[in-house]
Nucleic acid binder design. Structure first.
Lengths: 212, 212
DNA sequence: CTTATCTTGTGAAGAAATTCACAAGGCCGT
DNA sequence: ACGGCCTTGTGAATTTCTTCACAAGATAAG
């Protein structure tokens, strides 16, 4: 299969979000122009993005909302439930553990881990904090798909190595560190300080900064 | 000034992070190759990124760590303290309010706001939750630079309009919504469900997904 | 059936970002 | 002072991404 750009996948997520709104609103068909207006892009971009995966529309008419929603869910792999573990029972981990948006979209939190003996065994949101040392065994018994890392930056690489060794192949990293993993493992890093620095740059160089 | 790509700014942030590590480690000079290896890019990319803002290196020798660190701080606008307000006194807002990494990099949380009467006045981390209605007056008395939005998606646009009306020109949005703001206002959105969908796509289409 | 009106899907053009590749400098040892 | 060795800074080439623009197909009305 042809390589798909990250930016394309992000836009598909956005389109799906708006399609769901339209679906709720009762519209049965939507044009690339309408979707583009909502997602802040152009109709050509919408059609190009979709054309990577096939042709889902009817000329002169647009896209069937229900059909396109289904296809996007398929493409994004949202037809099933993904088991997610959170490593790091701190404030950020807690906020994520109770975040409703995840389950709504098919991501269910399976367990929360930490390495701090003072935390292991404690109640944490609706979970009991488990020992990171038992991760490998746990996963052998009951696989998990995605790990969210909410650990301090200086241990993030070590924790990543552990979850990779346990068989996880997708990681969302909130630690302020650039992580290295084998090719078959996908790591996405969200670095909030870095986002703020982008804003600092924009405030400092109003002319130079792109409109984001 | 020439337009600077968002990706360039993000990489500059990364470079700065590694330079600070090197500085702590005592190295006095660094090559584009070394920086690139750390940041997961190429030496040519590093030099191109820097060349947008000037030429800071010495041929045959590399970059002076202290000097380059200082220049990057200047470029990113980190030479001063930025006043940040958090709107939305929920779990995510709380996690951010107490996050050390922000203050370390010159972003100081000035206040936390909410619109829920049940929350206003309450202690929240080391702050007292203020009424969003008083935002405009507060800011007139004591300006703020950046707003972090940790509110539900369905009110995010309204809250954005409020902070823009109060004079804020940079916003970091954690609400799951695509927001629209005037050109002179920079909005960055972090959507965690969307990041997970990117991972879902990568797991579902191993060949097609870019190595992120 | 024919015409008028839409909107898709997609090559081609254009723009933007990344990588290549090498001349220009600077340092060091002799 | 000179030659050998590095590494920068940057045009040019390449690759990737976005926008343009239009033929092809679909619907609807008369």
């Amino acid at each position: 299969m042809k390589r798909v750009a990250d930016s394309t996948v992000r836009r598909l997520s956005l389109y799906l979000r708006y399609l769901e709104e339209f679906e709720a609103g009762g519209s049965s068909t939507i044009s690339s122009d309408e979707l583009a207006a909502r997602a802040g892009t152009t109709s050509a971009q919408v059609r190009k993005d979709l054309s990577v995966f096939g042709s889902f529309g009817k000329r002169g008419l647009g896209y069937d909302v229900v059909e396109l929603t289904r296809r996007l869910r398929d493409i994004l792999g949202l037809g099933r439930e993904w088991r997610v573990i959170i490593v790091g029972a701190g404030k950020v981990g807690g906020a994520l553990a109770q975040y409703r948006g995840f389950r709504q979209r098919g991501f269910s939190i399976a367990a929360v881990y930490d390495s701090d003996p003072a935390k292991i065994g404690n109640a944490f949101e609706s979970f009991t904090v488990r020992d990171i040392a038992s991760l490998k065994d746990d996963i052998r018994r009951q696989p998990a798909d995605i790990a969210i890392l909410t650990v301090p930056g200086d241990v993030a690489q070590r924790v990543l190595d552990q979850v990779v060794a346990a068989g996880i192949r997708a990681v969302l990293n909130f630690a302020p560190a650039q992580l290295h993993a084998p090719d078959q493992v996908t790591v996405k890093t969200v670095n909030m300080a870095m986002e703020l620095e982008g804003l600092s740059f924009a405030l400092t160089n109003p002319v130079a900064a792109r409109s984001a």
